[in-house]
């Protein structure tokens, strides 16, 4: 929940705003209650929340940028940094924990050279922390994008990662 926030004004390439404006156009008359759904759609469209899209949201919704940052940094789903093509979430719930999730996490770090919260240099994978995926019967389990992989072993994990 506690994210280090870096607001890079310079050197960050501004993204094309066509998709951003299309999303905002769908929400004319949006109130602050629509902020989270709008941010979710923005992140779906761009993979992360680029700086200039947030400036568009501020202007269009009349919500201060500071408030928007407040919301983004509170929820673990949102990212201010570009993310990998695939998102890996390894369940660290109780059942997975006692069935070997720590070994699976070690294996991922070993294969991809990244830790939780990081993205591979080629932007292929982002490795995200998650508390519990609610699929304890599959323990230990991980999710890549929206697909679940259950009853993992370290060998199986390596094989799955290499299949992407």
């Amino acid at each position: 929940m506690h994210k280090a926030v870096t607001i890079k004004k310079e050197g960050v390439p501004a993204v094309d705003l066509t998709k951003c404006r299309a999303i905002l156009a769908k929400h004319t008359g949006a109130t602050s209650a629509d902020l989270i759904p709008i941010l979710q759609q923005m992140q779906d469209a761009y993979g992360y929340l680029p700086q200039n899209t947030l400036e568009e949201i501020t202007a269009s919704m009349r919500i201060p940028l500071s408030k928007i940052y407040g919301v983004i940094t509170f929820y673990s789903q949102f990212s201010l940094e570009p993310r990998g093509k695939h998102t890996i979430k390894v369940c660290t719930g109780t059942a997975c924990h006692i069935k070997g999730a720590p070994d699976i996490k070690k294996k991922i770090t070993e294969v991809l050279h990244i830790h939780e919260g990081e993205t591979t240099k080629d932007y292929k994978f982002t490795y995200e922390p998650v508390a519990c995926l609610g699929t304890c019967f599959l323990a230990p389990v991980m999710m890549i994008n929206e697909r679940y992989y259950g009853k993992l072993t370290t060998e199986k994990t390596e094989h799955i990662l290499k299949s992407y």
Binding site: A33, I36, P37, Q77
Partner: peptide, 26 residues
């Protein structure tokens, strides 16, 4: 439907309300 955004504390009812209102879920 309101989709959460990854914060456990939002299961607490007053935090859940803040989240539905579009705020930090505290």
């Amino acid at each position: 439907i309101k989709m959460g955004a990854g914060a456990f504390v939002c299961g607490e009812e007053t935090a859940l309300i803040a989240s539905i209102e579009g705020k930090r879920g505290m």
